[in-house]
Design a protein around this nucleic acid. Structure first.
Length: 647
DNA sequence: TTGAACTCGGTTTTT
DNA sequence: CCGAGTTCAA
């Protein structure tokens, strides 16, 4: 009862800084919101305040990075005011703007699709080193788009050495082929709207007059394209409310730049800055240790978080001989907390890399403790799901070459890489969408050398796609018809090991289509497909009740738990080997650890193992340098294990 | 074109 | 150790 009461009070009572932020109405405002400082509450309350002051719900636009965060915020506002406001991810909003004002029917390519398209481009370029070339160039393209540089905006002086000199051509070719496919990639969802706004001011004006009040969450994670997008939309009146915490910036490797937050007052003159420094989440011992850790970062916006939740326990540091002992400890300690009344969903285990989850899973399974792993491959990234989605894309556009090459050989019709490339080049030359081009081959209008088997296969394929395109019925039925006509379930039987699993995933897609139809009356196949590719694992949620949560540190942002384990505090793991070259990289690793620590409300365990199996080899692991940075007085180091195991 | 044999590399991943 | 990508023979 008491907790319920305090929770209700917490909702009502805002501290002076929070109040100031909530009451801010016009002009640019930056809220530096430390971990656990009640950021979400402030954002929601501020929206509520705007509505009370007579702002119309449709004049408000909220932007987040995840669908989950967006959904939660929409729900909170709806509960408080019964109003429907638009809160969306940057990417969904970009897609929406492009469909409204640019081209309604495009396809969105995810990373895998983009890489396949890029691979085709690379084949015709004489590279001296093809190893890892796709990833390298894909990264360069992504960086260019994040930095708002199209192929013609590149500074050619920058790309003179070795294979890099091909980059401008590769980039241009990649963009051209995307266009042929009537597709955009994830980065285009930001890049293209910004270009559209800059080049066509009448379009920008439409959106400026639509959204008068902007709110941006996790501003420390925005990249340059997002910054420009926001700046353009904010326009003259600059009713821009951004919230972020530079100490929780952990996505710089994806183009996020802390500059956006550090230079906010320069970018938006007259901006007000409010700092939220009271932490309502953690016991002060945990918070103090986290503060000390993060103070080791030199490049930092200094602040000092404090908590009046009482000291609480000090931090438990445990060192083990092997990762099995570590996992065993995590599970047994979890069980003892459970016995003391802590619900399992108040326990989280954080690790730096996904492979570390394997051993933890083994032990949770062995002791029969329910757990759920967040992250990893999402439902929509599974091969079988993507195959069916690719068929649907062929039905929808007929120009999507990646979908074409993915589906043409299901089942095997004798088409290999060489023929596919030939078809792609020829169809571009003929100026026809790939599907029309294939039909013209069969009709003899265009001559491409194909053997008998291929010709029959092509005819069969086109017959199937034609039938599905002509299909009249609900989306759900279309998905079923597609599975049926593509012969996909038979095709799955070629691998009996996985067939059952895959079949149920494919069938799950039918339910998803049915669900979608109920939820959104309007919107065709393009919208359905677009929404799916913008969904990740984190959005699936589902049955997370009363289960221990396992996730990477990156996925921990925005969450809180009574009991937190951060495992694998070892050199080369945290900080990770590939992220200790520069100070900036090391500082980002430190922030990552900081994010992990600050998720804890009551109890924080840090563990490391002296030996660990990595890639099939037993390796000796040095303790993480971050452990030395923690205040020793706040650490409870149990030396027992050392006595047992040392030499 | 395709399957078998081989080499190589291997973080994080909101969308 | 494992999966993706490459190479090579049929």
């Amino acid at each position: 009862m008491e907790t319920l009461l305090t929770k209700m009070l917490e909702k009502e009572v805002l501290n002076p800084e929070q109040m100031q932020a909530v009451n801010h109405l016009e002009g640019p405002l930056l809220v530096i919101a430390g971990a656990g400082s009640g950021k979400t509450r402030v954002v929601t309350q501020r929206i509520v305040k705007l509505l009370e002051k007579g702002v119309m719900p449709h004049q408000i636009l909220g932007l987040t990075f995840t669908n989950k965060a967006a959904g939660e915020m929409v729900e909170r506002v709806r509960q408080a005011t019964n109003s429907q406001v638009l809160i969306s991810t940057f990417h969904s909003l970009g897609a929406r703007i492009l469909r409204e004002s640019y081209n309604p029917g495009f396809t969105i390519y995810d990373e895998e699709d983009s890489e396949k398209l890029l691979k085709g481009c690379l084949d015709s370029i004489p590279l001296s080193d093809r190893k890892g070339a796709i990833k390298r160039f894909r990264h360069l393209i992504s960086q260019s788009k994040n930095g708002m540089q199209g192929p013609i905006d590149l500074d050619s002086n920058e790309f003179e050495t070795g294979d890099l000199k091909h980059f401008p051509d590769i980039y241009a070719m990649y963009q051209a082929r995307l266009k042929e496919c009537n597709a955009v990639d994830f980065d285009d969802l930001l890049f293209l709207p910004v270009k559209l706004f800059t080049e066509k001011s009448e379009i920008l004006d439409v959106y400026r007059s639509r959204w008068k009040y902007l709110l941006i969450d996790e501003y420390q994670d925005t990249n340059q394209a997002q910054y420009e997008f926001v700046k353009l939309l904010a326009g003259k009146n600059q009713n821009l409310f951004v919230v972020g915490d530079p100490d929780q910036s952990i996505y710089s490797w994806r183009g996020a730049t802390i500059r956006n937050i550090l230079d906010f007052e320069i970018d938006f003159p007259g901006a007000k800055v409010i700092r939220l420094e009271q932490n309502y989440r953690s016991r002060s011992n945990i918070l103090e240790a986290a503060n000390v850790l993060i103070s080791h970062n030199d490049n930092r916006y200094k602040k000092n978080l404090w908590s009046d939740r009482g000291e609480g326990d000090i931090i438990q540091l445990r060192e083990f001989h092997t990762e099995r002992d570590e996992a065993d400890f995590v599970v047994k300690t979890t069980m003892s907390h459970q016995n003391q009344g802590v619900p399992l969903d108040e326990v989280v285990v954080f690790y730096r890399t996904n492979f570390q989850s394997r051993i933890l899973e083994d032990y949770f399974l062995h002791y029969q403790i329910p757990y759920v792993i967040y992250g990893g491959i999402s439902f929509y990234q599974r091969k079988e799901v993507k195959d069916i989605l690719a068929f649907l894309r062929m039905i929808q556009t007929g120009s999507d070459f990646v979908a074409f090459s993915r589906t043409l050989n299901i089942p095997k019709r004798g088409f290999g890489a060489a023929t596919l490339e030939k078809l792609q080049v020829a169809s571009i030359e003929a100026g026809l969408p790939i599907l029309d081009f294939c039909e013209s081959i069969l009709e003899g209008t265009h001559k491409i050398r194909v053997n008998k088997k291929q010709k029959e296969g092509l005819a069969d394929y086109i017959r199937i796609i034609r039938h599905l395109r002509a299909f009249q019925g609900t989306l759900r039925d279309l998905v079923m018809e597609t599975i049926e006509w593509s012969g996909y379930l038979t095709y799955l039987k070629s691998d009996p090991e996985t067939a059952d699993d895959r079949r149920s995933n494919v069938q799950e897609l039918v339910s998803k289509a049915a669900e979608w139809e109920i939820r959104s009356q309007d919107g065709g196949l393009a919208e359905f497909l677009g929404e799916l590719t913008l969904k990740s694992t984190l959005d699936q949620g589902g049955d997370s009740g009363h289960k221990v949560h396992l996730m990477t540190l990156h996925n921990g942002k925005g969450l809180e738990f009574d009991v937190v384990f951060v495992v694998g505090l070892e050199e080369d793991l945290l900080p990770h080997v590939n992220s200790k070259e520069t100070i900036d990289e090391l500082e980002e690793e430190r922030r990552l650890f900081y994010v992990g620590m600050t998720r804890a409300k009551e109890t924080l365990y840090l563990t490391r193992s002296k030996y660990r199996y990595m890639w099939g080899m037993l390796r000796y692991m040095e303790p993480s340098c971050f452990l030395d940075e923690l205040p020793q007085g706040l650490l409870d180091t149990d030396r027992e294990d050392d006595d047992m195991w040392l030499e």
